[in-house]
Nucleic acid binder design. Structure first.
Lengths: 211, 211
DNA sequence: CGCTCTCTTGTACGAATGTTCAACAAGAGC
DNA sequence: GCTCTTGTTGAACATTCGTACAAGAGAGCG
């Protein structure tokens, strides 16, 4: 009578890992820190509890892998967006626009990042991922800022510090907005960042950021 | 022979609450999210497990109280520091200096704030504390920035957006530094913020931040 | 001194946690 | 069609969690 329903299906390890990471991110976005749970993630991925530990010896490694995946995805999005610009000034505008896009600026995401940050201090793996991805972000900004400085005949400026500042402004606005989206509008956020880049191009930061 | 050692001592409710909050902050700084534990906090405060629940019906309320205490303390420190300045420009410098002082810029603190932020989304109490304290920070910045704008004959500038941006720059640098203190030096951090204020005073943001 | 109030203690309980492991079954290879 | 590999399952374990609650003990007051 009842057809013997398939109890589970096999998937290639690579696919399964991707599948688990995706479920992890969904779980963290929904439950925040409470989502760091083998059982909750297993339920979100619709697999058994044991399968998680089959692929990841400990749950920390799954979280770490999810961190790397999310960071890499966003870094790629920002890189692609900025590369599509014509000239450094336009590239920076696209970087800013993408930073305030729905994929990045999302209150649900705050719950995810907060989990990651909380683990950076106690996990060497997470520290490594953090440093690598932060380096990626800043490197992209440094390249465009350096080109912009050259275009505007700005010399002896500390590009690394400038990229750090712009990145911090973006991060700070992101954090502020995620904690309470009513703090400011997306347009104002973009305007504040664009204003910073304009000021940079005009040499407004030169006196403080000499190399 | 052995003197009957006192098993515990009574303290006035107000003092006890302060004592518990202090232990909570120490616990969060040391253990991060794992520090959100009645047992760990009780051990840190050297009291019994039950006493926590005597003063706080649920642990969330203790965390919320700790959030309010820490935020209020830092807000007071920043307010006092900035009030000691002569004129708006100096006040802002002192605000910046204090923001990069050891009481605020401390990697241990990141673990504490991360716990608070993670609870903001799911707790109305925490949301209320967040909005109140963020308003305090920004209000102080708005006052000094408005005075500085007046001194420099800048009109029709969106002071609220400017305060948001400066606050975000401070927060973003704080976050970046706490995640990895080797990202930049404190002096560079101060320089980037001072540079932003200089650019603001020079009217560099006027085109983007018209009211 | 003794009474009383309540601050404080510590056990108890059910629920949820991460990890382990033996058993099952899907699907490729022959 | 059979075998074998291994992806997958789910029960079991010790641990930790937050909260409840009855009993104990400090300290002020009569």
């Amino acid at each position: 009578m009842a057809a013997p329903t398939r109890k589970f299906s096999r998937i290639q390890p690579e696919m399964r890992r991707e599948h688990l990471v995706e479920a992890t991110l969904r779980c963290l976005a929904e439950h925040g820190h409470a989502g760091v749970s083998v059982r909750k993630i297993a339920a979100a991925a619709d697999v058994s509890i044991g399968l998680i530990n089959h692929y990841y010896p400990s749950i920390d490694q799954l979280i770490s892998h999810a961190y790397e995946t999310l960071s890499g995805g966003i870094a790629n999005g920002l890189l692609e967006a900025s590369e599509s610009g014509v000239g450094p000034r336009d590239s920076l505008s696209r970087f800013i626009q993408e930073s305030f896009g729905p994929a990045v600026l999302n209150p649900d995401m705050l719950g995810v990042w907060v989990v990651f940050w909380s683990m950076v201090r106690h996990s060497a793996d997470m520290q490594a991922v953090q440093q690598r991805t932060y380096g990626q972000y800043r490197q992209v900004l440094e390249r465009h800022l350096a080109a912009l400085a050259r275009d505007n005949n700005l010399t002896d400026i500390n590009i690394q510090a400038a990229a750090t500042a712009l990145n911090a402004l973006l991060d700070g606005l992101w954090l502020t907005w995620c904690l309470n989206p009513q703090n400011f509008s997306v347009e104002d956020g973009v305007a504040m960042c664009e204003g910073w880049v304009d000021a940079f191009a005009a040499g407004a930061f030169l006196p403080r950021l000499k190399v």
